[in-house]
């Protein structure tokens, strides 16, 4: 349509110039869009190439080797990978129920007038930078956990045979449990925001019919809202998991940076991101930096898989809602 208008215009060179500008503009935007894809590819490729020397030296056993010896230049990723997974697991165990509670409160319980302010306040929790959580965790939360929560946990669970090993050792405040706890607070707003949004996609008529036959609010949530939004909720949880896995500064402050796999949740440990943050700029030797980059590559692959799964689930819900 536009072309027809341009072709019929009397000033031929003018219209040709405009059409050229059109193609140029469109091409530029397309180029930058491709740039985003290139960026992802470049990140993966550079990490892979950077980590190659370590992979050649240690092979696949890098994944389960526990040694981390910069002096002898022998490195294994197990403590960092284990720490990453365990802290994120703790974060999910604490954070997901809380986030679901917030979402239920915001969609079912909250007076409409307060819905926005409270939702915004919870979202502001997500705006606080990671390093602030770190400094707060180190100086405020860790001493608090050390003096109250950890002795309590030891008293309650320390004598139960099968889970006793989780709470061995002195309560020193910093460690895997504290890191998981901080992560739980950090992922809470992300999961709560997505869950609230998907809860909102439930057609009002479904909800109202359930209330109409006499369901309580809890039953509406359990039997109507959750089954309808299952995929979206899982997507939101995975989104939070992706954040927790890659979270760096908050964890670095409170995890204690110890390269060993210990079963106790009270013991210090490390994560991939904390290892990178603590050691990268001071690493020397032929295999130290490549080992760290290899860890970074592993982290990127794990988070990529988790985030991609989350995204696909949320897309599926969008399509369902569009129907």
């Amino acid at each position: 349509m536009v072309d027809a208008v341009l072709e019929s215009s009397s000033t031929g060179t003018h219209s040709r110039r405009q059409r050229l500008a059109d193609i140029l503009f469109r091409g530029t935007t397309q180029l930058f869009a491709c740039g985003v894809l290139v960026l992802l590819g470049a990140v993966m490729l550079s990490l892979l190439i950077g980590g190659m020397p370590a992979f050649h030296a240690f092979g696949v056993s890098f994944l389960w080797s526990e040694v981390w010896n910069p002096v002898k230049q022998i490195f294994g990723g197990a403590p960092a990978i284990y720490g990453t997974l365990v802290t994120s697991l703790i974060a999910m165990l604490i954070g997901v129920p809380l986030a679901l509670g917030v979402a239920i409160f915001l969609t079912e319980l909250c007076p409409p007038l307060l819905r926005r302010p409270i939702g915004t306040l919870v979202e502001l929790l997500a705006a606080i930078p990671s390093i602030i959580y770190g400094i707060w965790g180190l100086f405020v939360l860790a001493p608090f956990l050390q003096l109250t929560v950890q002795p309590f946990l030891k008293d309650v669970f320390g004598n139960i045979p099968l889970i006793e090993f989780l709470f061995r050792g002195p309560p020193i405040g910093i460690g895997v449990l504290t890191a998981g706890f901080i992560l739980a607070v950090m992922v809470l707003p992300f999961i709560a925001a997505v869950t609230r949004d998907v809860f909102m996609t439930v057609p009002a008529i479904l909800r109202e019919s359930a209330y109409g036959v006499g369901c309580t609010t809890a039953e509406v949530v359990r039997d109507i809202v959750l089954p309808y939004t299952r995929v979206g909720v899982v997507g939101g949880v995975m989104l939070g998991l992706g954040r927790a896995l890659g979270e760096t500064m908050a964890v670095t402050f409170v995890i204690g940076n110890a390269h060993r796999v210990s079963a106790s949740l009270l013991a210090p440990g490390t994560t991939i991101s904390a290892t990178l943050a603590n050691e990268f700029s001071e690493a020397v030797g032929p295999l130290y930096i490549p080992s760290l980059i290899l860890l970074g590559f592993i982290l990127f692959i794990i988070t990529f898989a988790v985030l991609a799964a989350a995204k696909l689930m949320l897309l599926r819900l969008d399509r369902q809602a569009a129907k």
Binding site: V36, L40, L47
Partner: peptide, 27 residues
Amino acid sequence: LAPVVRFVNDILLSAPSIVIGVFVYTL
């Protein structure tokens, strides 16, 4: 192209920022 870029962009949005640091370090 558009759905793919949108998908990748949403992943980059949540990707661990420390990995971007490593990327820029090597590059």
